[in-house]
Design a protein around this nucleic acid. Structure first.
Lengths: 208, 208
DNA sequence: CTCGTTCGCTTACATTGTAAGCTTACAGCA
DNA sequence: TGCTGTAAGCTTACAATGTAAGCGAACGAG
C-alpha cells in the first residue's frame, strides 16, 4: 500500500505529545500504550527515542521549563525576581497536571542550571554576598513551588472547596475558620501569592 | 492445624505497616501484595479495611500528621509558629519517602483542619486580622513544604550532589555557581531553613 | 444450636512497563 | 540498478499491578 509517508517520530514530538496528553487526561492516565496510540504508533516504538517511562517524565519537565519565560535584565533586581516567579507560577496554571512532576522530579539538565545561574547573578549584582544569594534563591523557590502546588490542589486541608466545608464544622470548635467562612471561596490568589512574595523580598532588601 | 490465633488486622495496623514499608523500600515499591506479605496476609484482605490503594495512601498521610507534635500555647506566637514548622520539617526528615504524599495528596480530615484552626487562632490572638492570618498561614506553609520537598530531593536542579557538579560546568558561563563551589556541600540546612522562616515571620511582624 | 456477619482466602482479569527479536525502508556505495 | 547496513518501526511475551467476585470459616447474638 502506498501509505502516506509517516512523519518520523522524534524525542521532542513525543515529549510534547505527552505534555498535551497529561494536560488533558491527567498524569495517572499516561501510559506508554496510550501515548503511542495518540501518536499513531505502537508503545514500543517510543523506546527508540526515550529509554524508559521515567525519562519520559523527566523530558516532560524539560518541556515545561522551556516554556518558562525569563524576564529581561532591564528592570531592577526586585522586579526581575518577581516576574520570574510569576512566570513560574504561570506554568502551574497552564499545566496543572504536569507541574507536580517538576517539584517531585526536578530536572538535572543544563537548562535548569542555567536558570539558577541567572538568578544568582541577579542577586550578586544587586549586592548580596554569595551565601545570602543562595539562601534567597532557596527561600523564594521553596515558597513559590509550595504555593503553586497548594494552589493546584485547591488548598486542600483547609475547608474551602474540600469535602469539609467551613459551614459543616462545629462553630464552637473552629471559631477562626468560621470567621473566614465566605471569604475562603473568594480569596484573590494573585494577591495572596504577591503577599508572600513581597514579604520575602522585603525581608531580603533589609539584609542589603 | 491449630494455628496460632492470628492477631486481627485493622486499619491502623495496616497504615502503620505501610508507612514503615515505604520508609524502608520507597514509595514506588509499595504494592498491595507486598504490603500483605509484610503483614502475613493476602493482598485482598487489606481491602476489608481500606477501600483502595488511594485511600491507603491518604491514610498514611493521616499517620504522618498524627506524629506531628504541635507546640504548647505557652510561648509567644512567633516561637510557637516557628516550632510548629520545625516539627513539620522534622516529619520530612523522619519519613522522606512518605512526606511527598502529604504535599501531593493533602489530607481531607478533621485532624488536618484542626491544625489549621490552631494556627489561625494563634495569629488572631497575636492581633492579626482574619485575612492576614490566612495569608500568613498559606505563605508559611507554602515555604515550609516547598523547602522540605526540595531538601528531600537533595536540592536537585542545583549543582550540588547532582550529576552536574559545579566543577564540571564551564566557569565562564556559570560564574555565580562556581563562586559557591565547595560551599554547596556544606550548607547548614537548619540555618538555611531558619533564614527563610525568619524572613517571613519578620515581615509579618511588620504588619501588626 | 442456629444464623448472620465479619474477614481472610482464592481465583480471575485487564492494564501496565519493558525485554527480545523480527521486519521494513532508506542511505550510501557498487 | 541492485546490495547491504542501520535506524526505527512492529509483534510477541512476561511478570507485576490494582481490584472485582465469590467462597468459607470463625464468632457473637438469639
Amino acid at each position: 500500500m502506498v501509505s502516506e509517508r509517516r512523519r518520523p517520530l522524534d524525542r521532542r514530538t513525543i515529549l510534547e505529545a505527552a505534555v498535551r496528553f497529561v494536560d488533558g487526561e491527567g498524569l495517572d492516565s499516561l501510559s506508554m500504550r496510550k501515548l503511542g496510540t495518540e501518536l499513531g504508533v505502537e508503545a514500543m516504538s517510543l523506546y527508540n527515542h526515550v529509554p524508559n517511562k521515567g525519562a519520559l517524565l523527566d523530558g516532560m519537565v524539560e518541556v515545561l521549563l522551556g516554556d518558562l519565560d525569563v524576564p529581561s535584565e532591564s528592570e531592577g533586581w526586585e522586579d526581575r525576581i518577581r516576574e520570574a516567579y510569576r512566570a513560574f507560577r504561570r506554568l502551574a496554571h497552564e499545566h496543572p497536571n504536569v507541574f507536580p512532576l517538576l517539584v517531585v522530579r526536578p530536572p538535572d539538565t543544563m537548562d535548569g542550571v542555567w536558570l539558577v545561574e541567572e538568578f544568582l547573578k541577579t542577586l550578586r549584582e544587586a549586592g548580596f554576598d554569595p551565601e545570602t544569594s543562595l539562601y534567597a534563591f532557596r527561600a523564594l523557590s521553596s515558597y513559590a513551588s509550595g504555593y503553586a502546588i497548594a494552589e493546584i490542589r485547591g488548598f486542600a486541608m483547609e475547608p474551602a472547596g474540600s469535602r469539609l466545608g467551613a459551614s459543616t464544622l462545629p462553630r464552637e470548635d473552629f471559631p477562626s475558620i468560621h470567621e473566614l467562612d465566605g471569604r475562603l471561596e473568594t480569596v484573590d490568589h494573585d494577591a495572596e501569592f504577591e503577599f508572600g512574595l513581597g514579604l520575602i523580598i522585603a525581608g531580603l532588601k533589609e539584609k542589603l
